[in-house]
Simulated assay, not measured.
Amino acid sequence: MIMKKGQSGGNIAVLVLLIAIFISVYILLIPQEDRDDLLNEINKKNDSNGDNGDVELVLLEESVGILKPSDTDTVIHDIDSVSLFFRDEPVTQDLANVLTIENGLFGESSQKLVFNLDDEDNLRDIALFFFVREGDGDLEVKLNGQNVYAGKAEGLQNINLPKNIVGSINELQISVDKGILGNKYVLSDIKLRENFEITNAQEVRNVVLSSAEDENAKLSFLSFCNEQNSGARLRIFVNAKESFNELMPCVPQRKNLEIDKNDLNVGNNEFIFDIDKGDYLLNDLELEVKSKEGGKERIKFPISEEQFNKIQEDNEVVLKVEFGNLDEDDRKGTISVNGKEFSFNTDDDEFEKLITSFVEEGNNFIEIKPDNEFEILNLEIIIER
């Protein structure tokens, strides 16, 4: 059968209508989450085929960091002194002025003394000492129920107490044996001498470097030994990497440590000083860093032929700077793009400048010279159309 042209067009319209109805019913019947994803995908495709408004083409994006002016090609950072030590710190506790201990025909009179210990971990040694004014028989001393002394005592007595039986709360019991007719002790100036090891084996110092300080550095210091010892081992870590490990004699000496630029960061740098024994003072600490002249930061960015053609099609090249929050309120300096300079002085967190006429096809250079210290969190050069 031969179909007429009008009939064919009508059939196609019906088919299209049926497909549209089917799609609509399908969209209504699928789960809500799948329906939202499908509609969003359709909207994205429509947007990509339509007008997106302003389009930005990024030519340069850089986190510059801290900038600060410099009159020379080196910057010296003074670092606080470092005191590292293992020290004995004696502490004396008075337990009693006079004690009388008896054991005879009419009964026994022993004495109990209680003392506290606040720092068990750092206790190095502990001793009981007293003066015997009068004494007959054998004296017995117990610490927390365990014998620590038994025998004849006279004059000044010094009894070392075992650390392993000392706790936070302790009891001393002092008694005397009975003998035939009874025995008696009179003790005076009963004291405890505790010796603690006070340690400060490690110190941390932080140094913030500007983006212009990107060359090798030298750490120098003068070491002093506060007590005679066989020599401590000093280690210095720069950003967690061991850069110095030497035995330090107990004589004043100046040390210089060369630091490779690859071991340093723009921004914060952590220096850890560590010893294994002894008592040392590191003084006159300085970090000397090679710096670009004037503290300048110079960055290269290319512009392709296609990008330059876009610029010439009535588009603009915009420099955008986002500053960090340092103590200085104003950010002052000079920016040069391919040798064309302009200055800035702002207390805002953001700064923008049209630099369309400054750029050219091929390699371009932007140079920032600070007049005071400030931080650039982000620097962008973009094409806006």
Rank of each mutant, 00 (worst) to 15 (best):
I2G: 01
M3A: 04
S8F: 14
G9W: 15
G9M: 10
G10Y: 09
L17V: 06
F22A: 15
F22L: 13
S24K: 14
Y26P: 07
Y26M: 14
I27S: 09
I27H: 02
I27Q: 01
D37L: 12
I42K: 03
N43I: 04
N49Y: 10
N49Q: 12
D51H: 14
G53F: 08
I66R: 06
D71F: 10
D71G: 14
H77W: 05
S81L: 13
V82I: 03
D88V: 14
Q93P: 00
L95I: 08
N97F: 08
N97E: 15
N97R: 06
V98N: 14
L99F: 07
S109F: 01
L113V: 06
L117C: 01
D118E: 08
D119E: 06
D121R: 11
L123T: 05
L123E: 07
A127V: 11
F130Y: 09
E134N: 05
G135L: 10
D136W: 05
L139D: 06
E140I: 03
V141K: 02
L143I: 14
N144F: 07
Q146E: 13
N147M: 07
Y149D: 03
A150K: 08
A153H: 03
N158H: 11
N164H: 07
V166G: 01
S168I: 06
N170R: 02
E171M: 11
Q173R: 12
S175G: 07
G182R: 05
N183R: 01
K184W: 04
D189Q: 14
I190E: 11
I190H: 02
K191H: 14
I198N: 13
N200H: 15
E203V: 04
V204P: 02
N206G: 08
S211Q: 10
D214K: 09
A217D: 01
L219I: 00
L222N: 13
N226D: 11
Q228Y: 08
R235H: 02
F237K: 06
N239Q: 05
N245R: 02
L247Y: 06
C250G: 00
V251S: 07
V251C: 07
P252S: 12
Q253H: 11
D263S: 06
N265Y: 04
N268S: 09
N283M: 02
L287W: 00
V289A: 02
K290D: 11
I299E: 09
I299V: 15
S304F: 12
K310Y: 01
I311K: 11
I311H: 05
D314E: 12
L319F: 10
V321A: 09
V321S: 08
F323T: 03
G324N: 13
G324V: 04
N325H: 15
D330T: 11
D330I: 10
R331L: 05
T334L: 10
S343Q: 13
S343N: 09
T346H: 05
D348S: 06
E350S: 13
K353Q: 08
I355H: 11
E361V: 15
N364Y: 10
I368Y: 11
E373L: 09
F374H: 05
I376G: 05
I382V: 15
I383M: 03
